[in-house]
């Protein structure tokens, strides 16, 4: 979309500064896959930056390079001004990484996991135990403290994983698909935790394939497809690029769909998209005021409706507009704005 919407932040304020990142897999001669293909990424201190893309877009690979877990094949990257290639040990002191697959020890209990990581980070035994107990309570895991992780649910593992990432109180936190595979309730809890971290002043680099997750949490979003950045901006900017909002109506009597469509067309001068079997109409709106006019016209025509919602275009629609194909995990349960 538009990379010039924000003037570049001064280099000293950047938590992540990566230019031209490249990662290739495969041997020379055979098929070489450029998993990450010249991505620029600038994350400003204190913001939540979302990297959005379908499975296999290169999100995790990019994060792994920035976290010193994978060698960088091309380009340059620094974390708070510290070069990732030259100073890996320093970079690791600035980062907390929460992986896509919970990186905790299956054979240990929750407490033992946190004590181990605290010990590794240089805390004495008593301090390590205090830190573990404190984090477990904070993340609602106290009751499970003495259970082995292999008996944990997916949501509990993620929470423990995030807790483990916070032991070193890192100024920058990488969250690699923090809610993939979680049920909606657990996902909401994870979002609350992430919002709390943001309120504390953490800088967060988040990858997700859930479009609404990026929309909910991120200040800025980069859209990645096949290893390349195809767009960057605020969620609003990305959505504005796709166009207007849509009014969804559902009629009480579905046999009146055609009559209602005629009324709408007279009111706005544009034909709605119909789903007659459900008595539904999708009315594209040039601006949100049009919704009022449509509703008044329907009332005057004595056509009653059961629901009316106006919603902004989903990021899936944004993705389609930017890349020419759907994101692989399209979801329609996005937030809607009730007007009736």
């Amino acid at each position: 979309m538009n990379d010039n919407l924000h003037p570049p932040a001064p280099r000293g304020d950047l938590a992540v500064d990566a230019t031209g990142l490249v990662k290739t897999f495969g041997r020379p001669g055979s098929n070489i896959v450029r998993a990450v293909d010249g991505v620029d990424l600038q994350v400003v201190r204190g913001e939540v930056f979302g990297v959005l893309g379908p499975n296999g877009a290169g999100k995790t690979t990019m994060l792994s390079m920035l976290a010193t877990l994978l060698p960088i094949d091309g380009g340059h990257a620094s974390i708070f001004g510290v070069d990732v290639v030259d100073q890996p040990h320093r970079v690791r002191q600035l980062l907390g990484v929460t992986g896509q697959y919970a990186s905790v020890d299956e054979n240990l209990t929750a407490t033992e996991n946190l004590v181990l990581f605290a010990r590794l980070l240089g805390h004495r035994w008593p301090a390590a135990r205090t830190i573990a107990a404190d984090l477990l309570e904070r993340f609602g895991l106290t009751e499970a403290a003495t259970r082995q992780i292999k008996n944990f649910s997916g949501g509990m593992r993620r929470r423990l994983d995030l807790a483990a990432s916070l032991i070193s109180r890192p100024p920058l936190i990488f969250l690699d698909e923090p809610t993939t595979g979680l049920d909606p309730r657990t996902r909401g809890q994870m979002w609350d935790t992430i919002r709390e971290l943001v309120a504390q002043g953490s800088t967060i680099l988040l990858t997700t394939q859930y479009l609404d997750e990026a929309d909910q949490l991120a200040d800025r979003i980069a859209v990645i497809d096949a290893g390349r950045k195809v767009a960057e901006g605020t969620p609003e900017e990305l959505k504005a690029g796709v166009g207007s909002s849509t009014l969804h109506l559902r009629l009480t009597d579905r046999t009146q769909t055609a009559a209602a469509a005629a009324v709408v067309e007279r009111a706005l001068g544009e034909a709605p998209v119909l789903t007659p079997e459900a008595g539904g109409l999708n009315v594209p709106l040039a601006n949100a005021d049009g919704a009022g006019e449509v509703l008044i016209a329907l009332r005057q025509a004595e056509l009653s409706i059961t629901t009316a919602t106006v919603r902004q275009p989903t990021l899936d629609e944004v993705f389609l507009a930017l890349t020419g194909h759907h994101s692989e995990t399209s979801e329609n349960d996005t937030e809607t704005e009730e007007v009736a």
């Binding site: 309570e137 109180r169 609350d192 504390q200």
Partner: peptide
């Protein structure tokens, strides 16, 4: 998560200055 938001403890601390 509820345990976090209702926690009476000090907020999750992070080092802001680097």
């Amino acid at each position: 998560m509820t345990a976090v938001t209702e926690s009476p403890q000090a907020p999750l601390a992070v080092r802001a200055a680097v």
